[in-house]
């Protein structure tokens, strides 16, 4: 682990933890609103896993930053421009199909990435990935099944899933848009350069979409600005208003 720039390592950890935090929060918005009880429970469980992983990633990020902050400080006291999550995960839930399409597009990336992080040169990254990858194996199995079930379902469900894929596909490219932080992590053996994960991702997503009878849009256009923090969508601020309200209104509140 010699020679890793601490600031860059912290940025990498924020990207990991912010993805799971923001998606976990989004998915938790379904609690009590899903079409059927089993799906409600499944979404809540997925959100819980993601929030658990967030504690590990942001906990380690706080440790690396070394300025006495905690995972909670990072989650509740940063504003939108300091978040490093993919734009995909901050998008609104839409209908149930759109939520599950977003989940699958992220789970596929998450599972491929965590698989590589098992070989990280950083022991903490390796250990968190080992824990998280077991949970994510269940996430991707379920979201893929649901995408296939709804895509290859009724005329109505098929149309909604195709619309969800058309809407969300332009947010996939950001996952693989490497920058200096990624190159530094790759050079130190901490994490793979995400650009190198694209083929594996496309193979997995292509197989599931084919089974779901859905067509992947023929465009490589990608919305960017989430993982660098440069340009989040307007949706993130609204999400943070809900998520951070209590700590903003009553600083230090605790139970």
């Amino acid at each position: 682990m010699a020679g890793v720039d601490k600031d860059m390592l912290a940025q990498f950890l924020l990207r990991m933890g912010d993805n799971t935090l923001i998606l976990g929060h989004r998915v938790s918005e379904w609690c009590g609103h899903s079409p059927v009880l089993e799906e409600d429970i499944a979404l809540a469980n997925t959100a819980l896993d993601l929030l658990g992983q967030t504690q590990l990633w942001l906990g380690y990020a706080a440790e690396v930053m070394g300025d006495g902050k905690t995972a909670d400080d990072l989650a509740f006291l940063r504003d939108a421009w300091d978040f490093r999550n993919l734009l995909l995960v901050e998008l609104p839930n839409g209908d149930f199909g759109q939520t599950l399409m977003r989940q699958f597009l992220f789970d596929a990336f998450h599972s491929v990435l965590l698989g590589r992080l098992l070989q990280s040169s950083d022991q903490s990254v390796r250990e968190i990935a080992e824990k998280a990858s077991k949970e994510v194996a269940y996430h991707v199995e379920r979201s893929a099944d649901t995408v296939v079930g709804l895509g290859d379902g009724t005329e109505e469900s098929h149309a909604r899933m195709q619309a969800a894929l058309d809407l969300l596909w332009p947010y996939v490219g950001e996952m693989f848009a490497s920058d200096d932080i990624d190159r530094a992590m790759a050079a130190a053996g901490v994490a793979p350069d995400p650009a190198g994960l694209r083929d594996e991702y496309d193979a997995l997503v292509g197989k599931v979409m084919a089974e779901a009878t859905l067509s992947i849009p023929d465009s490589s256009f990608a919305h960017k600005g989430g993982r660098t923090g440069a340009t989040h969508t307007e949706h993130l601020g609204h999400l943070l208003c809900h998520m951070q309200w209590l700590q903003r209104a009553y600083p230090g509140a605790n139970w």
Binding site: E38, E39, I41, A42, N45, T46, L48, D49, E135, Y138, E141, R142
Partner: peptide, 13 residues
Amino acid sequence: KLSQFGSTPCKAQ
């Protein structure tokens, strides 16, 4: 199998 997830993260229905 009814669902991969149950009343706690460790169980399926």
